[in-house]
Amino acid sequence: MTLKLYLAGPEVFLPNARAILDAKAELTRAHGFEPICPGDILIEPAPTRHEFGLKISAVDEGMMNRADGVIANLTPFRGIAADVGTAFELGYMCAQGKLVAAYTNVSANHYARTAEFYAGDVREGADGRKRGPDGMSLEDFDMIENLMLHGGIERRGGFIAIHDAAAAERYTDLTAFKTCLSALAERAAA
C-alpha cells in the first residue's frame, strides 16, 4: 500500500502556486508516496465568500482524513511564525495519530525570531522570564516553532528538517522538503 502524504504549507498563496505544488507532488511520487495537495481539487462556487471558505475548509479536512501523514511547511509566513492554516493542519494530523514531518526554510529558532520582532528589546522580568517591551513573555525552548508545533512533531517520533534558504527562495526552495521525504521513505522501508 502506498502511503498518502498531505502536503501542507503556505505555497497555495504564491503567484506560482501550481508550479510549486506540482514540483512537490512529483518529488513525493519519486520517493514512493502518493501526494495529496490542497489546491488540487476544483471547488464548486458558493453564493457567498463565507460559504466558499467553508467549502474549502471541508475539502481540506476530507483530504487530511484520507492521508496517512503530513509534511508541513513551517517556514514563517506573514510574520514570525508558521502559516496559521498549516499550523491547524499539522495539529489536526497529530490529533489523528498520523505520520508527521515538517520543515522550515529559516534556520533562526522561534525565540530568535520573536526577539528580532522586538528589535532585541528583550528583558528579564521580575519572574525571571524573558519579556518584550509589551510585557509579554517569550518562548525560549530552542525549537524552530511554537512548542506545541515542534513538540507535537517530535513527541510523535516525527521528523523536522531545518534549512536556511535565500530570502527570495524562502517558499520555493525544496531542499528541506526533500530531506523530509527521504527521512519518511527511510522510515517506511524499515
Rank of each mutant, 00 (worst) to 15 (best):
R66Y: 02
M64Y: 01
I41G: 02
P45Q: 08
H163P: 02
N109V: 06
G128R: 05
G97Q: 03
A126W: 00
A95L: 09
S182R: 13
G39T: 05
E34C: 01
K4I: 03
G135N: 06
G158P: 06
Y118Q: 13
G62N: 03
N105S: 10
L149V: 10
M63R: 07
R29G: 05
A19E: 14
I71G: 07
A8N: 08
A72T: 11
F13D: 05
K55F: 07
A165Q: 06
N65P: 02
D68S: 08
I41Y: 04
N73V: 06
L5I: 14
A46M: 03
G32K: 13
Y103T: 01
R123M: 13
P15V: 05
G85D: 08
D173C: 12
G53L: 08
E169T: 09
A119Y: 13
Y171W: 07
R156P: 02
A115E: 14
A108L: 13
T2R: 14
A115Y: 03
M143A: 14
R170I: 12
H110Q: 11
G158T: 14
A67T: 02
T48Y: 10
T86P: 04
A112E: 14
A95Q: 11
A82W: 03
E44I: 02
V84C: 01
N65G: 04
E124A: 09
V12I: 15
P45A: 05
N73T: 08
G9V: 07
I80K: 00
V59Y: 13
A81L: 09
G91M: 04
G69R: 08
P10L: 07
I153V: 15
A165R: 07
G9T: 01
V70D: 07
G79Y: 14
D83K: 06
A183C: 14
L54W: 04
R187I: 03
L90H: 11
I56D: 02
F13C: 06
V12P: 02
A161H: 05
E44R: 07
R49D: 12
A166S: 11
Q96K: 12
G79H: 10
V106L: 04
L181R: 08
E89C: 10
E44V: 02
P133D: 07
D60E: 14
A168H: 11
T114F: 03
E186Y: 06
M1K: 04
I43W: 09
I162E: 10
I43H: 06
E186H: 10
P47R: 04
I162G: 11
Y92H: 15
I41A: 14
R170F: 01
A19I: 03
F117S: 02
F77W: 15
A183Q: 10
E169P: 03
E124N: 05
C94W: 00
A188Y: 05
L184M: 12
T86I: 06
A58V: 12
A17V: 03
I80S: 00
T86N: 00
D173L: 06
T179P: 00
E44D: 08
E186N: 05
A87I: 03
L138A: 00
Y171D: 03
V84W: 01
G53S: 13
G53K: 09
C94Y: 00
F33G: 06
A188N: 03
G32V: 04
G97K: 00
